[in-house]
């Protein structure tokens, strides 16, 4: 399963995604689905859902699940290549640009760029949510879990006056899935 061509594809796909991830990981999920499921047939819809869910259990940056996609496609080298591809290009860019950004301190274009990006990022996050929903919402149970979590996260703090760590909802979702879907 480990041929050089596949390895190169994994590196290429995730490097491209790295540079497209404006607005964070969620923003790039639709493109990640299109490339890994439709273009390369590395995963099925439900495998994508499973692997995305695995990533939710871990701490740190929320797109570490690319490691599992790489592992699924091409073993341990694939895991390393997906990780490197997804994180290296953007990190190198961040290293170079942070100095450049400070150079433009006070430039009106800096504010213009921030204001222009804000609605696009919200749009891309919404599209990322739709992309996950299309694989994860499969019936009554999953719909109810998603709606319940949305209501609790969005309205909960206004009602009980305190914020609950989102990790709690992730684990509760896993438990409910185990109880209702097996």
């Amino acid at each position: 399963m480990n041929n050089p061509h596949t390895d190169l594809s994994v590196l290429g796909v995730f490097s491209l995604l790295s540079l497209l991830a404006i607005g964070g990981g969620t923003a790039v999920l639709p493109e990640m689905k299109a490339l890994t499921i439709d273009a390369h047939h590395w995963l099925t819809d439900s495998q994508f859902r499973d692997i995305y869910s695995l990533g939710q259990v871990a701490p740190g940056p929320n797109m570490l699940m690319v490691i599992v996609i790489g592992y699924h496609v091409a073993g341990t080298p694939g895991a390393l290549l997906a990780f490197t591809g997804f994180f290296l290009p953007a990190s190198v860019l961040a290293l170079g640009s942070s100095r450049l950004w400070n150079h433009f301190d006070g430039s009106p274009w800096r504010l213009a760029l921030q204001m222009a990006l804000a609605p696009i990022v919200v749009g891309l996050m919404a599209a990322g949510t739709v992309a996950v929903a299309r694989t994860a919402i499969t019936g009554t149970e999953t719909t109810l879990i998603a709606v319940a979590v949305f209501v609790l996260v969005y309205f909960g703090p206004k009602i009980i006056g305190a914020k609950v760590n989102p990790a709690f909802y992730i684990f509760a979702g896993g438990l409910l899935g185990y109880l209702t879907l097996t």
Binding site: T129, E141, G177, L181
Partner: peptide, 19 residues
């Protein structure tokens, strides 16, 4: 798979709320 399906559904609610 059932646990991951539940987590995926919860993640959708979470993503929607954050968005």
């Amino acid at each position: 798979h059932a646990i991951l399906a539940g987590i995926g559904a919860a993640a959708v609610g979470l993503l929607a709320a954050v968005t």
